[in-house]
Design a protein around this nucleic acid. Structure first.
Lengths: 199, 199
DNA sequence: ACCTGAACACCGTTCAAGT
DNA sequence: ACCTGAACACCGTTCAAGT
């Protein structure tokens, strides 16, 4: 339900307001897919058939608009993360990194927004960034204790890899991004004992 | 000599033209450092004390301006690459990747420009991108034959890593970028024999 | 309660007119 | 040969006026 109107204080939003909100969201999604997250807000309002002031009335900043569009997508991502944490299959880490990367590459330019959203408390994307970082943190902690990654692997490694790979998907090929993920995950593997050692 | 005037057809450029060219370059460098590669051209012209038309007269596009600023920096990078290829020390690959990354992170936003410059033949950055890719290609070929990286390691892996790490430097921490380089290089190492094996 | 669109500031780019 | 700056198009953002 992409166009779900967020209930504010008032119980029933005016019918035209709701329709405008939904149309703006739909057009913004289309524009962001075509032109990236910096697409012209004025063109979005035009395509939605409303005045530019209406867009600002519903979405006071570009980040609010992006945040609204990402809400559901975030939920399903978080559910995946929780599931991975619960089941702890061997490929949980790889699955998570690839899913988070795909999410961060939803729109071109989103990776930058997420990268700054992690530090910037004022950003509307901040809490979802924290949530993503937290899932990564807990996954890597589990992986560390299970001995399937190096002892010095950190949550920051995951967010760096995730955002960087998302950027790669936008600017180079999808395969290149996936390849970087593969290589980095291999680099995260613990040094294997060379001689007799444990097996 | 950052401000070296490029000799065009005419032997002696007019004195004011040369001065404007140099001042524009200097102000552009400052602006790009402060605001990234998308800094306002109008403000650059203003700060250089010339009309906007003068900027366009010397630099018909933003990419030409960036290309002019990067020329010397490119030269020293290429010389480093050639040196590494000649000497073939064990850490040649790591040295190259870090140097190329630092270069691609000269200005914020440059990584994107270089990524597109590699494919776009019309870009003024295209030849230098090709040159960088070529050095990487030859370095990784040598490393492959020396057995210090996996057999499936490719030049594309290096450019992906380089540009992605440069983007990371711009958007997250310098250490995060370096860490990704370390992990990926580790991932590029050949699978070590687990039991008896060679050596 | 919400919408409209003019208003302001700023920018990229071109080009006729100057020197 | 080079410089100037007006001109055009486009955009982000705000806000008084409408319904």
């Amino acid at each position: 339900m992409l166009g779900m109107y967020r209930l504010s204080t008032s119980r029933r939003p005016r019918a035209d307001a709701r329709r405008n909100y939904d149309r703006l969201l739909a057009e913004a999604d289309a524009a962001f897919r075509e032109r990236g997250v910096d697409a012209s807000l004025e063109s979005i309002a035009r395509r939605a058939g409303v005045a530019i002031g209406t867009l600002y009335g519903h979405f006071p900043s570009r980040r609010v608009l992006v945040g609204a569009l990402l809400r559901e997508r975030n939920e399903t991502l978080f559910e995946l993360g929780d599931g991975l944490l619960a089941h702890q299959t061997p490929d949980a880490l790889a699955t998570w990194v690839r899913a988070a990367t795909a999410h961060a590459a939803t729109y071109s330019g989103l990776a930058s927004l997420l990268a700054s959203g992690l530090d910037d408390e004022a950003s509307e994307l901040h809490t979802s960034c924290l949530r993503m970082a937290d899932i990564g943190e807990r996954l890597i902690a589990w992986a560390r204790e299970s001995g399937i990654v190096r002892a010095d692997a950190t949550g920051a490694d995951l967010t760096a890899l995730t955002t960087a790979a998302a950027w790669l998907r936008e600017h180079m090929s999808l395969e290149g991004a996936d390849r970087l993920i593969t290589l980095t995950l291999d680099g995260l593997a613990p040094a294997r004992p060379t001689l007799a050692g444990t097996r």
